[in-house]
């Protein structure tokens, strides 16, 4: 399991294994998802974060676990994670 702490202090938990070649997602990076309003324009989405696999850079939406490229075909499990007092609790 990979647990991410976001800028707003919230936590997200996802399965740690990339479905592509089984890399550990915890070795990757969490970032705002890059989106566009038109050709040539890039914008970091405020509302969406993705975890990027350390191998091949596949992306997964931290909220849904789905790949932005193939949301119906490629996804990882997501879990509710909460900061409770001084512990991060993941509900499975």
């Amino acid at each position: 399991m990979a647990v991410a702490c976001l800028d707003d202090g919230s936590y997200k938990a996802v399965a740690n294994t990339c479905p592509h070649e089984m890399a550990s997602l915890a070795n990757g990076r969490v970032e705002k998802m890059w989106v566009s309003d038109g050709v040539g324009h890039l914008r970091a989405a405020e509302e969406k974060c993705v975890i990027i696999c350390p191998w091949h850079n596949f992306e997964f939406d931290l909220e849904t676990g789905r790949s932005p490229c193939e949301p119906d075909r490629l996804r990882i499990a997501t879990y509710r994670a909460e900061l409770e007092e001084d512990e991060v609790v993941v509900y499975v």
């Binding site: 890059w34 566009s36 050709v39 040539g40 324009h41 850079n57 596949f58 992306e59 790949s67 490229c69």
Partner: peptide
């Protein structure tokens, strides 16, 4: 595209 979508999100 699965790897590099971030470069061309349009």
């Amino acid at each position: 595209y699965r790897s590099l979508r971030r470069e061309v999100p349009w």
